[in-house]
Computed example of a mutant assay.
Amino acid sequence: MKHKKSLIGSIIYYTFVTAFGFVMIYPILWMFAGSLKPAQEIFNNAASLIPGIFVWENYPIGWQGFGRTGFDIFFRNSLIITSLTVIGAILSSSIVAYGFARLNFKFKGLLFACLMATVMLPVQITLIPQYILFHNIGWVNTFYPLIVPAFLGGTPFFIFLLIQFIRGIPRELDEAAIIDGCSTFGVFWRIILPLLKPALVTVAIFAFMWSWDDFLAPLIYLNDINLQTVTLGLRNFMDNEGNTSWGPLLAMSSLSLLPQLVLFAFFQKYLVEGIATTGLK
């Protein structure tokens, strides 16, 4: 009887989880299905995930882009910006986090409080001052406003995440390294950084997703269509009159989602471990 109750409970649990998972993934499945449907069928038969007629032409049409600018240009631009942003976020955030977690310096508590306060600061508040600054130094319509800030000071959320992880690493490792002749930076580079691998993968995934999906910053700073990213390229499928090429739009949206799905599939173990801020085994 006990085994029977346990079996019924497991069936109910997995049925609920499967149903909930399907509800969560349904919009993505709908997008992939819509990318293979003719324009009139996308909304006339919206609930169906099986196209009545498979229209594979949506992908080559969407990939052609606009004028002489194909979607390969948009993907290239997004890849350059996102890759450098991820590198900058990892380097700057890990260095700042190490300083707050391990070093003692004047006004440490005050500076950390200011750092955490910026987490609650809306992006719109700093948007105009940043634009004026980048305009005055001639960086508008370049990749610099989207890349350079990632190398300067780190991201508060990433810094907080890394601080919590570093605090779980025994200080005895630092002391042993110092006895062996390591400098402060040597302790960070040789001891702390290798042990930060799960947290750094988490930072990389979040930085990749936020940069790849960013629409506002490229819209503000990039005017030349040959410099625009995937998000702006998708927006170009809608004209000023509200007409939309839904088939090619959904096709390119599906392709733009693939890098994130692949990244998450390969590194989800480290993502969970990094968020849980586990220490040493």
Score class of each variant (00 low, 15 high):
Trp139Gln: 05
Thr82Ile: 09
Leu110Arg: 11
Phe151Gly: 05
Val96Cys: 09
Tyr26Pro: 02
Lys269Leu: 00
Ala217Asp: 10
Leu162Val: 11
Gly233Pro: 03
Ile166Asn: 11
Thr142Lys: 05
Leu103Met: 15
Asn243Asp: 10
Thr229Ser: 13
Ser6Cys: 04
Ile147Lys: 07
Ile80Asp: 00
Pro27Thr: 01
Thr142Tyr: 05
Phe143Asn: 01
Leu91Cys: 08
Asn104Pro: 01
Lys4Asn: 08
Ile169Glu: 01
Leu49Thr: 06
Gly154Pro: 05
Ile125Val: 15
Pro248Trp: 02
Phe206Asp: 02
Val201Trp: 09
Thr277Phe: 09
Phe32Tyr: 03
Pro60Tyr: 12
Asn236Pro: 01
Pro51Arg: 05
Phe22Glu: 00
Leu250Val: 01
Ile25Thr: 09
Leu257Thr: 11
Asn243Cys: 02
Asn44Trp: 05
Leu121Thr: 11
Gln40Thr: 13
Gly70His: 03
Gly70Cys: 03
Gly153Met: 13
Arg235Cys: 06
Val17Phe: 06
Ser253Lys: 04
Met24Glu: 00
Pro156Asn: 09
Leu250His: 02
Phe237Lys: 02
Gly138Ala: 06
Phe16Gly: 00
Glu241Gly: 12
Lys106Tyr: 05
Phe107His: 03
Lys281His: 08
Ile128Phe: 15
Asn45Asp: 14
Ile163Leu: 13
Val201Ile: 15
Arg76Ser: 07
Leu222Val: 01
Val140Ala: 07
Gly109Ala: 10
Tyr98Thr: 06
Ala265His: 02
Pro149Arg: 04
Trp212Leu: 08
Phe71Gln: 04
Ile166His: 10
Phe185His: 08
Thr142Gln: 02
Arg235Ala: 15
Leu234Pro: 07
Ser256Leu: 03
Arg68Val: 04
Asn104Lys: 15
Lys108Ala: 06
Lys5Arg: 15
Gly34Asn: 10
Pro122Gly: 04
Phe267Ala: 01
Ala117Gln: 11
Met238Asp: 04
Phe188Val: 05
